[in-house]
Protein backbone atom coordinates (compact mmCIF):
# COMPACT_ATOMS: atom_id res chain seq x y z
CA UNK A 1 0.00 0.00 0.00
CA UNK A 2 2.91 2.36 0.56
CA UNK A 3 3.37 2.70 -3.19
CA UNK A 4 -0.14 4.11 -3.37
CA UNK A 5 0.71 6.56 -0.62
CA UNK A 6 3.58 7.94 -2.65
CA UNK A 7 1.21 8.27 -5.59
CA UNK A 8 -1.46 10.05 -3.56
CA UNK A 9 1.11 12.42 -2.10
CA UNK A 10 2.32 13.43 -5.57
CA UNK A 11 -1.27 13.98 -6.71
CA UNK A 12 -2.05 16.00 -3.61
CA UNK A 13 1.01 18.22 -4.12
CA UNK A 14 0.00 18.87 -7.72
CA UNK A 15 -3.53 19.70 -6.66
CA UNK A 16 -2.42 22.04 -3.89
CA UNK A 17 0.06 23.85 -6.10
CA UNK A 18 -2.55 24.25 -8.81
CA UNK A 19 -5.23 25.56 -6.51
CA UNK A 20 -3.18 27.85 -4.30
CA UNK A 21 -0.53 29.39 -6.51
CA UNK A 22 -2.24 31.90 -8.79
CA UNK A 23 -1.83 31.19 -12.46
CA UNK A 24 -0.57 27.68 -11.87
CA UNK A 25 -3.83 25.84 -12.46
CA UNK A 26 -3.46 25.61 -16.24
CA UNK A 27 0.21 24.56 -16.09
CA UNK A 28 -0.78 21.90 -13.55
CA UNK A 29 -3.63 20.85 -15.81
CA UNK A 30 -1.12 20.62 -18.63
CA UNK A 31 0.99 18.26 -16.52
CA UNK A 32 -2.09 16.32 -15.49
CA UNK A 33 -3.00 15.70 -19.10
CA UNK A 34 0.34 14.01 -19.60
CA UNK A 35 0.16 12.13 -16.32
CA UNK A 36 -3.32 10.84 -17.09
CA UNK A 37 -2.34 9.95 -20.63
CA UNK A 38 0.64 8.03 -19.29
CA UNK A 39 -1.44 6.25 -16.63
CA UNK A 40 -4.04 5.17 -19.16
CA UNK A 41 -1.49 4.00 -21.70
CA UNK A 42 0.59 2.24 -19.06
CA UNK A 43 -2.26 -0.18 -18.38
CA UNK A 44 -1.79 -1.57 -21.86
CA UNK A 45 1.71 -0.66 -23.01
CA UNK A 46 3.43 -1.02 -19.65
CA UNK A 47 1.73 -4.18 -18.55
CA UNK A 48 1.65 -6.11 -21.82
CA UNK A 49 4.67 -4.70 -23.66
CA UNK A 50 2.59 -4.27 -26.83
CA UNK A 51 3.29 -0.98 -28.60
CA UNK A 52 0.02 0.52 -29.80
CA UNK A 53 1.16 3.30 -32.09
CA UNK A 54 -2.41 4.18 -32.94
CA UNK A 55 -3.40 4.67 -29.32
CA UNK A 56 -4.40 8.27 -30.01
CA UNK A 57 -7.40 6.96 -31.97
CA UNK A 58 -9.07 6.12 -28.65
CA UNK A 59 -8.61 9.65 -27.40
CA UNK A 60 -9.89 10.94 -30.72
CA UNK A 61 -13.02 8.81 -30.61
CA UNK A 62 -13.61 9.84 -27.01
CA UNK A 63 -13.39 13.47 -27.98
CA UNK A 64 -15.84 12.85 -30.80
CA UNK A 65 -18.19 11.11 -28.36
CA UNK A 66 -18.44 14.18 -26.18
CA UNK A 67 -18.66 16.54 -29.14
CA UNK A 68 -21.46 14.54 -30.75
CA UNK A 69 -23.41 14.48 -27.49
CA UNK A 70 -23.08 18.24 -27.04
CA UNK A 71 -23.76 19.06 -30.65
CA UNK A 72 -26.84 16.92 -31.08
CA UNK A 73 -28.44 17.27 -27.65
CA UNK A 74 -28.00 20.94 -26.76
CA UNK A 75 -31.47 21.87 -27.94
CA UNK A 76 -33.25 19.09 -26.07
CA UNK A 77 -33.21 20.88 -22.73
CA UNK A 78 -31.36 18.08 -21.00
CA UNK A 79 -29.07 20.71 -19.52
CA UNK A 80 -26.23 19.54 -17.36
CA UNK A 81 -27.18 15.89 -17.91
CA UNK A 82 -25.49 16.15 -21.31
CA UNK A 83 -22.11 16.12 -19.61
CA UNK A 84 -22.40 12.56 -18.19
CA UNK A 85 -24.12 11.44 -21.38
CA UNK A 86 -21.14 12.76 -23.32
CA UNK A 87 -18.68 10.95 -21.08
CA UNK A 88 -20.67 7.77 -21.43
CA UNK A 89 -20.76 8.07 -25.21
CA UNK A 90 -17.04 8.79 -25.27
CA UNK A 91 -16.28 5.70 -23.20
CA UNK A 92 -18.64 3.61 -25.29
CA UNK A 93 -17.12 4.66 -28.58
CA UNK A 94 -13.54 4.07 -27.52
CA UNK A 95 -14.46 0.70 -25.99
CA UNK A 96 -16.18 -0.35 -29.21
CA UNK A 97 -13.12 0.56 -31.23
CA UNK A 98 -10.86 -1.27 -28.79
CA UNK A 99 -13.04 -4.37 -29.10
CA UNK A 100 -12.82 -4.23 -32.88
CA UNK A 101 -9.08 -3.62 -32.93
CA UNK A 102 -8.44 -6.04 -30.12
CA UNK A 103 -10.34 -8.83 -31.79
CA UNK A 104 -8.28 -8.64 -34.94
CA UNK A 105 -4.99 -6.80 -34.40
CA UNK A 106 -4.00 -8.28 -31.05
CA UNK A 107 -3.18 -11.48 -32.87
CA UNK A 108 -0.18 -9.68 -34.29
CA UNK A 109 2.99 -9.06 -32.38
CA UNK A 110 5.84 -6.62 -32.14
CA UNK A 111 6.38 -4.30 -35.07
CA UNK A 112 3.47 -5.86 -36.98
CA UNK A 113 1.08 -4.88 -34.22
CA UNK A 114 2.55 -1.36 -34.06
CA UNK A 115 2.10 -0.83 -37.80
CA UNK A 116 -1.41 -2.30 -37.79
CA UNK A 117 -2.49 0.16 -35.12
CA UNK A 118 -1.06 3.04 -37.11
CA UNK A 119 -3.23 1.77 -39.95
CA UNK A 120 -6.32 1.84 -37.74
CA UNK A 121 -5.65 5.38 -36.62
CA UNK A 122 -4.94 6.81 -40.06
CA UNK A 123 -7.67 4.77 -41.70
CA UNK A 124 -10.24 6.07 -39.24
CA UNK A 125 -9.16 9.63 -39.74
CA UNK A 126 -9.49 9.46 -43.51
CA UNK A 127 -12.79 7.64 -43.21
CA UNK A 128 -14.14 10.58 -41.20
CA UNK A 129 -12.74 13.10 -43.66
CA UNK A 130 -13.48 11.18 -46.82
CA UNK A 131 -16.98 9.99 -45.98
CA UNK A 132 -17.83 13.35 -44.37
CA UNK A 133 -18.65 11.61 -41.15
CA UNK A 134 -19.41 13.85 -38.12
CA UNK A 135 -18.78 17.05 -40.01
CA UNK A 136 -15.91 15.58 -42.03
CA UNK A 137 -12.75 17.61 -42.10
CA UNK A 138 -14.60 20.63 -40.72
CA UNK A 139 -15.05 18.81 -37.43
CA UNK A 140 -17.39 19.91 -34.67
CA UNK A 141 -17.19 23.19 -32.77
CA UNK A 142 -19.18 23.01 -29.55
CA UNK A 143 -18.35 26.38 -28.00
CA UNK A 144 -21.71 27.84 -28.99
CA UNK A 145 -23.59 24.73 -27.88
CA UNK A 146 -21.84 24.77 -24.50
CA UNK A 147 -22.67 28.39 -23.95
CA UNK A 148 -26.30 27.75 -24.81
CA UNK A 149 -26.54 24.83 -22.39
CA UNK A 150 -24.62 26.24 -19.46
CA UNK A 151 -24.40 29.98 -20.01
CA UNK A 152 -21.17 31.90 -20.47
CA UNK A 153 -19.81 31.73 -16.92
CA UNK A 154 -20.49 28.06 -16.48
CA UNK A 155 -19.21 27.15 -19.94
CA UNK A 156 -15.93 28.90 -19.19
CA UNK A 157 -15.83 27.20 -15.81
CA UNK A 158 -16.28 23.82 -17.47
CA UNK A 159 -13.51 24.49 -19.98
CA UNK A 160 -11.03 25.96 -17.54
CA UNK A 161 -11.80 23.97 -14.40
CA UNK A 162 -14.21 21.04 -14.64
CA UNK A 163 -12.42 19.54 -17.63
CA UNK A 164 -9.12 19.65 -15.75
CA UNK A 165 -10.59 18.17 -12.59
CA UNK A 166 -12.05 15.39 -14.70
CA UNK A 167 -8.64 14.66 -16.20
CA UNK A 168 -7.23 14.67 -12.70
CA UNK A 169 -9.83 12.16 -11.57
CA UNK A 170 -9.37 9.95 -14.62
CA UNK A 171 -5.63 9.89 -14.06
CA UNK A 172 -6.11 8.89 -10.44
CA UNK A 173 -8.66 6.25 -11.31
CA UNK A 174 -6.35 4.81 -13.97
CA UNK A 175 -3.52 4.69 -11.45
CA UNK A 176 -5.64 2.90 -8.88
CA UNK A 177 -6.81 0.49 -11.54
CA UNK A 178 -3.17 -0.21 -12.39
CA UNK A 179 -2.50 -0.89 -8.72
CA UNK A 180 -5.39 -3.32 -8.45
CA UNK A 181 -4.42 -5.10 -11.66
CA UNK A 182 -0.78 -5.46 -10.62
CA UNK A 183 -1.79 -7.21 -7.44
CA UNK A 184 -4.43 -9.44 -8.94
CA UNK A 185 -4.17 -12.59 -10.96
CA UNK A 186 -4.43 -10.48 -14.09
CA UNK A 187 -1.25 -8.61 -13.21
CA UNK A 188 0.77 -11.78 -12.88
CA UNK A 189 -0.70 -13.14 -16.08
CA UNK A 190 0.21 -9.96 -17.95
CA UNK A 191 3.70 -10.02 -16.52
CA UNK A 192 4.11 -13.54 -17.82
CA UNK A 193 2.84 -12.46 -21.24
CA UNK A 194 5.24 -9.55 -21.32
CA UNK A 195 8.20 -11.75 -20.52
CA UNK A 196 7.36 -14.58 -22.89
CA UNK A 197 3.95 -14.87 -24.48
CA UNK A 198 4.39 -18.38 -25.84
CA UNK A 199 5.57 -19.72 -22.51
CA UNK A 200 2.62 -18.05 -20.80
CA UNK A 201 0.26 -19.73 -23.22
CA UNK A 202 1.82 -23.09 -22.63
CA UNK A 203 1.46 -22.60 -18.89
CA UNK A 204 -2.29 -22.40 -19.41
CA UNK A 205 -2.73 -18.64 -19.11
CA UNK A 206 -5.60 -17.34 -21.22
CA UNK A 207 -3.36 -14.95 -23.06
CA UNK A 208 -5.98 -13.48 -25.39
CA UNK A 209 -8.42 -12.78 -22.58
CA UNK A 210 -5.94 -10.83 -20.45
CA UNK A 211 -4.50 -8.89 -23.35
CA UNK A 212 -7.95 -7.77 -24.47
CA UNK A 213 -8.95 -6.89 -20.92
CA UNK A 214 -5.94 -4.64 -20.53
CA UNK A 215 -6.54 -3.18 -23.98
CA UNK A 216 -10.17 -2.29 -23.26
CA UNK A 217 -9.42 -0.83 -19.85
CA UNK A 218 -6.70 1.32 -21.33
CA UNK A 219 -8.91 2.47 -24.21
CA UNK A 220 -11.75 3.29 -21.82
CA UNK A 221 -9.57 5.74 -19.92
CA UNK A 222 -8.18 7.17 -23.15
CA UNK A 223 -11.70 7.90 -24.38
CA UNK A 224 -12.53 9.76 -21.19
CA UNK A 225 -9.32 11.78 -21.42
CA UNK A 226 -10.14 12.74 -25.01
CA UNK A 227 -13.65 13.80 -24.01
CA UNK A 228 -12.49 16.04 -21.19
CA UNK A 229 -8.98 17.23 -22.02
CA UNK A 230 -9.77 17.89 -25.65
CA UNK A 231 -13.46 18.41 -26.31
CA UNK A 232 -14.54 20.06 -23.08
CA UNK A 233 -11.35 22.05 -22.72
CA UNK A 234 -10.67 23.11 -26.30
CA UNK A 235 -14.37 23.17 -27.23
CA UNK A 236 -13.78 21.87 -30.73
CA UNK A 237 -12.78 18.70 -32.54
CA UNK A 238 -11.03 18.76 -35.91
CA UNK A 239 -9.97 15.36 -37.24
CA UNK A 240 -6.61 16.76 -38.31
CA UNK A 241 -5.93 17.74 -34.70
CA UNK A 242 -7.02 14.65 -32.82
CA UNK A 243 -5.69 11.76 -34.89
CA UNK A 244 -2.08 12.88 -34.54
CA UNK A 245 0.39 10.08 -33.88
CA UNK A 246 2.59 12.58 -32.06
CA UNK A 247 0.32 12.10 -29.05
CA UNK A 248 0.94 8.38 -29.04
CA UNK A 249 4.64 9.06 -29.14
CA UNK A 250 4.33 11.49 -26.27
CA UNK A 251 2.45 8.85 -24.31
CA UNK A 252 5.15 6.28 -25.05
CA UNK A 253 7.84 8.73 -23.97
CA UNK A 254 6.04 9.37 -20.71
CA UNK A 255 5.54 5.71 -19.91
CA UNK A 256 9.08 4.90 -20.82
CA UNK A 257 10.67 7.87 -19.11
CA UNK A 258 8.91 6.97 -15.90
CA UNK A 259 9.23 3.23 -16.19
CA UNK A 260 6.91 0.92 -18.11
CA UNK A 261 4.68 -1.28 -16.01
CA UNK A 262 5.32 0.56 -12.74
CA UNK A 263 2.65 2.34 -10.77
CA UNK A 264 4.57 5.56 -10.24
CA UNK A 265 6.22 5.60 -13.64
CA UNK A 266 3.60 7.51 -15.60
CA UNK A 267 3.27 10.11 -12.85
CA UNK A 268 7.00 10.73 -12.69
CA UNK A 269 7.34 10.51 -16.47
CA UNK A 270 4.37 12.77 -17.14
CA UNK A 271 5.51 15.44 -14.74
CA UNK A 272 9.12 15.35 -15.94
CA UNK A 273 8.14 15.44 -19.58
CA UNK A 274 5.51 18.13 -19.07
CA UNK A 275 7.82 20.36 -17.04
CA UNK A 276 10.65 20.03 -19.55
CA UNK A 277 8.34 20.82 -22.43
CA UNK A 278 6.59 23.69 -20.69
CA UNK A 279 9.68 25.49 -19.44
CA UNK A 280 11.64 24.91 -22.61
CA UNK A 281 8.85 26.52 -24.63
CA UNK A 282 8.89 29.43 -22.19
CA UNK A 283 12.66 29.88 -22.08
CA UNK A 284 13.77 28.86 -25.55
CA UNK A 285 10.72 29.34 -27.74
CA UNK A 286 11.24 27.40 -30.95
CA UNK A 287 14.10 25.21 -29.77
CA UNK A 288 12.45 22.88 -27.30
CA UNK A 289 12.10 19.97 -29.71
CA UNK A 290 15.73 20.27 -30.71
CA UNK A 291 16.66 19.71 -27.07
CA UNK A 292 13.97 17.15 -26.28
CA UNK A 293 14.76 14.88 -29.23
CA UNK A 294 18.36 13.93 -28.33
CA UNK A 295 17.33 13.69 -24.69
CA UNK A 296 14.68 11.22 -25.75
CA UNK A 297 17.20 9.09 -27.60
CA UNK A 298 19.68 9.24 -24.72
CA UNK A 299 17.02 8.10 -22.27
CA UNK A 300 16.05 5.17 -24.45
CA UNK A 301 19.66 4.09 -24.74
CA UNK A 302 20.76 4.67 -21.15
CA UNK A 303 17.57 4.19 -19.09
CA UNK A 304 15.45 1.63 -20.91
CA UNK A 305 13.77 0.80 -17.61
CA UNK A 306 12.84 4.43 -16.84
CA UNK A 307 13.35 6.62 -13.81
CA UNK A 308 11.09 4.62 -11.50
CA UNK A 309 12.41 1.33 -12.79
CA UNK A 310 15.93 2.53 -12.13
CA UNK A 311 15.14 3.78 -8.64
CA UNK A 312 13.35 0.54 -7.90
CA UNK A 313 16.59 -1.30 -8.57
CA UNK A 314 18.56 1.08 -6.38
CA UNK A 315 16.28 0.90 -3.36
CA UNK A 316 15.79 -2.84 -3.44
CA UNK A 317 16.49 -4.17 0.03
CA UNK A 318 16.48 -0.76 1.70
CA UNK A 319 13.66 0.57 3.83
CA UNK A 320 12.43 2.73 0.93
CA UNK A 321 11.62 -0.34 -1.08
CA UNK A 322 7.88 -0.25 -0.47
CA UNK A 323 7.46 3.37 -1.52
CA UNK A 324 8.63 2.87 -5.05
CA UNK A 325 6.26 0.73 -7.02
Amino acid sequence: MRGVHTLLIIYAILLIVGLTVPGMWQPVAFLMFYVALGQAFNIFLGLTGYVDFGYVAFLALGSYGMAIAMDSLYQTGLGAAILPIGLLLAALMSIMLSLAVGAVALRLRGAYFAIATIGVNEGFRYLIEGARLWGGSEGIIITGAMRKIFGREMANFISTMVADVLVFGIGLLAALTTYVIIHKRMGYALMAIREDEDAARVMGINVTKYKIMAFITSAFFAGLIGASAWTLKMTYVFPSDVFLITYTVEAIVIVMLGGAGTLLGPVVGGITYGLLKYYLSVILPGFQLLILAPLLVAIVVAFPEGIVGYLKERVRGTRFEGYIL
Binding site: Q26, M234, S281
Partner: peptide
Protein backbone atom coordinates in the same frame (compact mmCIF):
# COMPACT_ATOMS: atom_id res chain seq x y z
CA UNK B 1 5.40 35.68 -26.43
CA UNK B 2 5.87 31.94 -26.11
CA UNK B 3 6.14 29.15 -28.61
CA UNK B 4 2.99 27.03 -28.76
CA UNK B 5 4.52 24.46 -31.17
CA UNK B 6 1.35 24.74 -33.28
CA UNK B 7 -0.28 22.35 -30.80
CA UNK B 8 -3.59 22.87 -29.12
CA UNK B 9 -2.86 21.52 -25.63
CA UNK B 10 -0.05 24.02 -25.13
CA UNK B 11 -2.40 26.95 -25.64
CA UNK B 12 -4.48 27.06 -22.42
CA UNK B 13 -1.49 26.91 -20.09
CA UNK B 14 0.48 29.48 -22.08
CA UNK B 15 -2.51 31.81 -22.27
CA UNK B 16 -3.12 31.51 -18.55
CA UNK B 17 0.56 32.10 -17.88
CA UNK B 18 0.47 35.21 -20.03
CA UNK B 19 -2.56 36.53 -18.19
CA UNK B 20 -1.61 35.69 -14.63
CA UNK B 21 2.16 35.46 -14.44
Amino acid sequence: YYDDESKKENIPSLVERLITS
